[in-house]
Design a protein around this nucleic acid. Structure first.
Length: 816
RNA sequence: GCGGAUGUGGUGAAAUUGGUAUACACGCCAGACUUAGGAUCUGGUGCCGCAAGGUGUGGAGGUUCAAGUCCUCUCAUCCGCACCA
């Protein structure tokens, strides 16, 4: 009866593989559950974060299978991306070979962990069959006007030699290699995600309850909606002349129209087109021009250190007071928000104040607090009462905002406007290992979409990857093609797509059964049945990027008519990180624990049990070697004590009333564990408490030796623990129960019925003693028992009140 | 600065949602079995105290018969965003 995990785990892994145990049914009348873990990048080996991620989803998938749901629990590989190319540069490897070798190895790891993934729906996003449909979608999006190309200032990573999306720039550095990014003027393709900004924001409401609050807030902040007033500031005639009449105005946006009368200067971003024009046409002194150039060259982090600016020597007219206002260039004005220009109200905005103090600009107060004096030493940024504001004097900030906007609109000099921080998603990358953008450049037809029947446009196998430039661009033949429209000589687009495009629809592809893979990306019917994902599980690091893009794609696909819902993921669980020695496991810190080594030493069940027992899934998990041993010991005991079980094809019938106290107690604990298990799998996901409940019940079982009680307990345990430690549970279940117990378990009430129960007795809320009372004892009876037991504490005091909380306690309130 | 969380034994963590604080596990201590134990089993283990008892969920107040849980203030830590006009 030795616990030989190696034999047991191998045996059941082979059994599951041979029986296709985890394939979803095509019967769409069954109730479904779609359980999805974020798919991995095939970096080579699984790490503990993966093991945690898939242990959680596997537990849910296996539970729902037992409950007779049709369960889709797929896995795939997010296999395009730069590490493959970097390996190619470093080791002269073929990115494709490198990727698919890694995938093979990781599939072996999945198997050795006993994860119940559907095998038949596995794919890698670098599969040409996946690229084929993705390219089709891109063409659709372009034709629908949801994708466009534009020259613009882009985030360029000099190390990775590619453009990055705004979302991929962290603190001014590349999200992947931490190299400071530089701005580069390039042509780039964009998805119009900003067009969906409002819906992406408003439908976050529908995710409340299902998604962690933190993620909702992060997305809300990222979208960054703000309402305000936009208007033109017109140059005075002298300034217009200086600008050769090329410009007569520029736009500004404010969320504080109530401060409009306090505008004393305005500021443009260093990259603003008027500034560029003035520099190019030598309208500024060399000194001023070089100062502006320096601002442009300064990274966004350094720009935050100190405000600086220069006057441009031109002025605009205040739209209401008609006064002249100087125009400055200021380093704190961002080109990519609003119009790249601001009206400055130093009296009521901290930045404007700081800038005005530094350059000795006018400060004009127009709002005062209701309850105190206006300070001259700082900006008053709160709401208050307007003054110095002509017809709006005396109004409060809030009402005046609406009134001032209306005034601008009535006079047709401005309008109510909504601004978003969310920018369009730049998706082209100058890299090899990605899905080619299926467009063709033709001298006579311009930009032409590839014909869908020619898809996929696959990568050439013989590209030279050196880390410099774009391998597709440099390939001797790949880019030369015929124009799909006129048939003339043309060239292919050599940019590839951001890998986040692949992960934005992979969950839809999983809904397609293998039989249809060649013909369609997915069918509407299959999608309608399987979507939305009932439970999505992954790391918080995807809170913005992936999860926002996937939501965007879902809405786009809806508008393209591919599907009929608005949000892809009904419930989201963001798992905590796996730590060792208080820090995130990482190769550079040398504090990693290799899953393969743990499996070799203790087996997959131990790894899974430890990971789910050590902390609730949403919390950080500290790796602890001796606690792993503890998990192993529990499984070993669990297995060895199954020797007490009698073989049976049904759950044993037990006459509860004939049992001893210990036997009754053991049954109580067993059924308490079952109740908790249902609660955990359906609602709470706190697997640690479920496991604790089973351990408690095991401890209680050990105090008695009734083999019927043991058998009933194991019938239930090997069912409710199977989602967590499947191999050993299958072993026990097949040995004693013919695998017939791996299904929904019925809670019986009689075990919870006790003859007597213990009530705590407290005096003034302080626990003093306890009493045993029969379950049908009357309240007076209980009180008198309690008084008797607590007599010691009742001498010389007056009883004010007696409170009986049924099945819990008696509280006696005393005075004196 | 704005936003989101989290603070409970030596450690990871429980607490049926206002009702016996510390379940379960790790660690530690003791005992048993052993030639031996880093195996296994049994028992103990919040803190102070010989005990009676006192005290205890970051801190200070409050509501309540009763607060880890609700309210007010406050401190600390972590995370995200950040010159967004």
């Amino acid at each position: 009866m030795d616990y030989n995990f190696k034999n047991i785990e191998k045996k059941w892994q082979e059994f599951w593989a041979k029986n296709d145990s985890f394939e979803p049914s095509e019967d769409f009348n069954k109730e479904k559950k779609y359980i999805l873990s974020m798919f991995p990048f095939p970096s080579g080996r699984l790490h503990m974060g993966h093991v945690r991620n898939y242990s959680i989803s596997d537990a849910l998938a296996r539970y729902y299978r037992q409950q007779n749901f049709n369960v889709l629990h797929p896995i795939g590989f997010d296999s395009f991306g730069m590490p493959a190319e970097n390996a190619a540069i470093k080791n002269n490897a073929d990115p494709k070979e490198w990727t698919y070798d890694n995938i093979d190895y990781m599939k072996g790891e999945f198997k050795s962990l006993g994860f119940s993934f559907s095998k038949k729906r596995e794919f890698a996003t670098s599969d040409e069959l996946y690229t084929k449909f993705e390219q089709g979608f891109i063409i659709d999006m372009y034709e629908k006007g949801l994708m466009y190309s534009q020259k613009g200032l882009l985030n360029w990573c000099p190390n990775d030699q590619t453009v990055l999306a705004n979302e991929q720039v962290i603190d001014g550095c590349c999200w992947r290699c931490d190299t400071p990014i530089v701005k580069k003027d390039m042509n780039q393709y964009y998805f119009k995600i900003s067009e969906y900004g409002d819906e992406l924001l408003s439908s976050l409401k529908n995710l409340e309850g299902g998604w962690p609050k933190q993620v909702l807030t992060m997305q809300e902040n990222w979208i960054g909606k703000s309402n305000g007033l936009a208007f033109h500031l017109f140059f005075d005639s002298a300034s217009k002349g200086r600008l050769n009449n090329t410009f007569d105005s520029f736009d500004v946006f404010t969320t504080r129209p109530d401060t409009i009368y306090g505008v004393t200067y305005t500021a443009l971003a260093p990259e603003h087109k008027i500034v560029t024009y003035m520099i190019e046409n030598k309208m500024l002194s060399d000194e001023v021009a070089s100062k502006i150039q320096m601002m442009k060259n300064t990274s966004s982090i350094d720009r935050q250190k100190e405000k600086s600016g220069v006057p441009l020597g031109i002025s605009v007219i205040h739209p209401l007071t008609k006064k002249e206002i100087p125009v400055w260039v200021a380093n704190f004005v961002l080109m990519d928000y609003g119009s790249g220009a601001v009206m400055a109200v130093p009296a009521h905005d901290e930045r404007d104040f700081e800038f005005a103090k530094k350059y000795d600009l006018d400060i004009k107060s127009v709002i005062k607090p209701y309850d105190k004096e206006l300070s001259k030493d700082s900006a008053f940024t709160e709401a208050g009462e307007l003054f110095n504001s002509e017809g709006f004097d005396g109004q409060n900030s809030q009402e005046s905002q609406a009134n001032i906007i209306k005034y601008f609109e009535d006079k047709k000099i401005g309008q109510k406007t909504t601004n978003y921080k969310l920018k369009d998603w730049g998706v082209s990358r100058q890299r090899y290992w990605g899905a080619p953008i299926p467009f063709v450049h033709c001298d006579s037809c311009g930009l032409v979409m590839e014909k869908k029947e020619n898809l996929p446009i696959a990568l050439p196998a013989d590209a030279e990857i050196t880390g410099e430039g774009n391998p597709l661009e440099r390939h001797p033949t790949w880019k030369y093609c015929k124009c799909p429209k006129c048939g003339g000589d043309a060239t292919r687009e050599t940019d590839t797509m951001d890998t986040f495009v692949e992960s934005s629809w992979y969950f839809l592809r999983f809904c397609a059964s293998e039989a249809n893979w060649e013909d369609e990306a997915f069918s509407k019917e299959q999608i309608a049945y399987w979507m939305g994902v009932d439970q999505y599980i992954g790391g918080i690091e995807h809170a913005i990027l992936h999860l926002l893009y996937a939501r965007f794609f879902t809405k786009v696909f809806r508008d393209l008519g591919y599907l009929d819902f608005d949000e892809p993921f009904d419930r989201l669980l963001t798992q905590g990180m796996v730590l060792k020695d208080g820090a995130k496991m990482s190769k550079s810190k040398g504090n990693t624990v290799d899953p393969d080594a743990i499996i070799e030493k203790y087996g997959a069940d131990t790894a899974r049990l430890f990971i789910l027992f050590a902390a609730p899934p949403t919390q950080e998990l500290e790796w602890n070697d001796s606690a792993v041993e503890g998990a192993y010991r529990f499984i070993k005991r669990f297995y060895e004590r199954s020797a007490n079980v009698i073989k049976t094809k049904t759950i044993p019938k037990i006459e509860h009333s004939t049992l001893s106290k210990e036997e009754k107690f053991a049954r109580l604990k067993v059924y308490e564990a079952l109740v908790r298990a249902n609660d955990v799998y359906n609602e709470k996901y706190t697997f640690n408490t479920l496991i604790a409940g089973v351990m408690e019940a095991m401890n209680a079982l050990n105090l008695q030796s009734n083999r019927a009680v043991w058998s009933e307990a194991y019938w239930i345990f090997s069912s409710i623990m199977e989602p967590i430690i499947p191999h050993v549970c299958y072993e026990i279940s097949s040995e004693y129960f013919g695998l017939l117990n791996l299904s929904a378990q019925v809670v019986i009430d009689e075990v919870f019925e006790q003859d007597t129960l213990m009530l705590a007795v407290s005096i003034n809320g302080k626990r003093r003693t306890e009493i045993e009372v029969s379950t049908d004892a009357k309240e007076e009876e209980i009180i008198s028992l309690a008084k008797e037991a607590a007599s010691k504490w009742l001498e010389g005091v007056v009883i004010v009140k007696e409170i009986v909380v049924p099945k819990k306690l008696v509280n006696i309130v005393v005075k004196g």
